[in-house]
Nucleic acid binder design. Sequence first.
DNA 1: TGGACACTTCGGCGCTCACCGAAGTACCGG
DNA 2: CCGGTACTTCGGTGAGCGCCGAAGTGTCCA
Lengths: 242, 242
Amino acid sequence: MSPSPDSVTGPDLAALAGLLADRTRAAMCLALLDGRAWTAKELAQHAGVAPSTATAHLHQLVAGGLLAEERQGRHRYVRLAGPATAEMIESLASHAPLRSTPIRSLSDSHRRRALAHARSCYDHLAGTVAVAITDAMTDRSLLTWEYGPALTDAGKAWLRDLGVDDHRPRSGRAHVRGCLDWTERRPHLAGAVGAAFLQRALDAEWVLRKGSTRVIVLTDTGRGVLRERLGLADAVLYAPAD
Amino acid sequence: MSPSPDSVTGPDLAALAGLLADRTRAAMCLALLDGRAWTAKELAQHAGVAPSTATAHLHQLVAGGLLAEERQGRHRYVRLAGPATAEMIESLASHAPLRSTPIRSLSDSHRRRALAHARSCYDHLAGTVAVAITDAMTDRSLLTWEYGPALTDAGKAWLRDLGVDDHRPRSGRAHVRGCLDWTERRPHLAGAVGAAFLQRALDAEWVLRKGSTRVIVLTDTGRGVLRERLGLADAVLYAPAD
DNA sequence: TGGACACTTCGGCGCTCACCGAAGTACCGG
DNA sequence: CCGGTACTTCGGTGAGCGCCGAAGTGTCCA
């Protein structure tokens, strides 16, 4: 079993927090929240540090259990260790203050607008669109927040009708979970059900990943589905200034 | 509304994590997880630092929004800023590795056993007893984990019958929430319902706070209630080696 | 087989920050 | 009003750590 309870005094909070307490490592973890695997070089460039510095940081994060690594040839791919890790980082990020930085270019501005509109958040959808979907589901009594977020019977049937398969083996992971969005600051659908929904949306091409970023764009098919099934307005279905 | 989304790049994860990344500050926050207000001197002694050092740390935690302070005469009382803060620290702590330290004395050993058995975790109950209560509620279909933790209709009636009042105004806070216990590493009842349950247990003297610590002891009345209502065995109702 | 590339290791630099003690301020009680 | 106590402010010190560049190892490709 676990080590004798007599020999431990409690969780080593400082050690875990220390891993995320550095600008560079935090930037890496937030980047990895898109759910994909990145190479060390990509993360180094993203964080703006030398490759040797990135190596040291990645070692720490892997040793701390936050990241899993996978080596292919001369590349070292690294990804978040699992959904639990993603949810922890996400939860912490939602409580963190917002950091403002100057906009460097026009494309920078476009990218930020696109991210705020729709993006992947590890394995589910986030952004304005995700919040709108969640609100509409709540309005239509597909989702209830009375005793924590949960699907209603109508909601389960609705998802089944959409072709969303949430029948995963019991993994202790909450099927429905509110995820506080760091742009909207309002909860949206996450957990196993949120992941299944995004998977279905990608499979059916309701949405597409934009290149290798975490930006998600709606297709016309997707807009049709959201308009019909949830009554979403064009104001949220189309990204502003796109 | 919020600042223009164009001017922010994301959450300042490193700043928040940095507050908890120090042994001393982490020890203070974990101590404050008992939900009570502590004076600066108490926290300094608990963490093993000089009063002047504690002052600096508390300033940082208050400035970061994690702690709320309240001044009474020459005392500075400090407490966690709110349930959301407590849940964030708790969630982080449940993912942190366990830190082992040598046992210094016999009373030390007793204290740790008592803590593992039953303790307050901000506003709800934690420890072996809390996990046993949660398991028993699940077995009796008072609580379901199918789509995240939620009370069943039977569970709502059962709580009402016990005199637990969970009718709080909608605060966005999940009424039922799993809280991963750092000794048991298994979820137990938290959230608004968990808080209401502890409150009822204290009011009815099913449990007592042991002095000014976070240790909770069961009374004979409390043992009777848990035996009758949930069928808990004596093995969990009595603290080991007490 | 040689050159380009991804990653790693190592040494050294410099900054940040946790810590303390000493001195100062506010408050309580006799 | 005066001693004791809680807390604060202020230098000074030392350790930890994030950073880089240079040199080294393994892999891919022409």
